[in-house]
């Protein structure tokens, strides 16, 4: 297989959800060749190099499939950061922030669902990717619901006219 074919295969499986730069593919192939995981078998007249996987490469792929994806360092989550900051920032209507996000996330979910229903007999790989987007969006909505409930429980005391004690309690809780 040569680089362009690899890119096509990847994008067919993932529905182009994560577009791949063809330059990136060639750089990666170069590194794999350096590490002995693939070897160049042929160079076509147009200069396309065809690669084949080596035994070491096969072992590496098997190991990759067998190893769970690391959850150790959570990726940056702008939404979690936004809400974490919003609850302590002055003048921010947190329920409004939550609702605006919920609507936007459900809209994305509707769009993914339309993609899915349009390809009912579609490619299994692609369906799994769309489902992954759908479940992630659903989880986000559930988390937003949870945040809202938590906020109501937390905020109830200091919704009243501010008294000394309510203020102190509010701050202590916010610091936890």
């Amino acid at each position: 297989m040569y680089g362009y074919q690899l890119r096509l295969e990847f994008e067919a499986s993932t529905g182009s959800t994560w577009p791949l730069n063809v330059g990136q593919v060639y750089t990666t192939l170069g590194r794999l060749e350096r590490d002995g995981l693939v070897r160049a078998v042929d160079t076509a007249e147009e200069g396309q190099r065809t690669y084949a996987i080596t035994d070491a490469g096969r072992a590496e792929v098997r190991a990759w499939f067998a190893t769970p994806v690391s959850r150790e360092s959570p990726p940056r989550d702008e939404l979690a950061i936004k809400l974490a900051l919003a609850v302590n920032a002055p003048g921010v209507d947190v329920p409004a922030v939550i609702q605006a996000q919920r609507t936007a996330t459900v809209e994305a979910l509707q769009a993914y669902t339309r993609l899915k229903s349009a390809s009912a007999d579609g490619d299994l790989s692609w369906l799994l990717v769309v489902d992954s987007l759908i479940f992630a969006a659903e989880a986000e909505v559930r988390w937003l619901d949870h945040c809202e409930t938590r906020l109501v429980r937390h905020r109830r005391p200091d919704r009243r006219p501010i008294t000394g004690t309510a203020d102190v309690t509010g701050r202590q809780e916010a610091r936890r």
Partner: peptide, 17 residues
């Protein structure tokens, strides 16, 4: 429904509060 995944099938989602 309370499940967003199911609401995803709708043309329009109305949020009641």
């Amino acid at each position: 429904t309370h499940e967003a995944r199911h609401a995803g099938w709708a043309d329009r989602v109305v949020f009641l509060r």
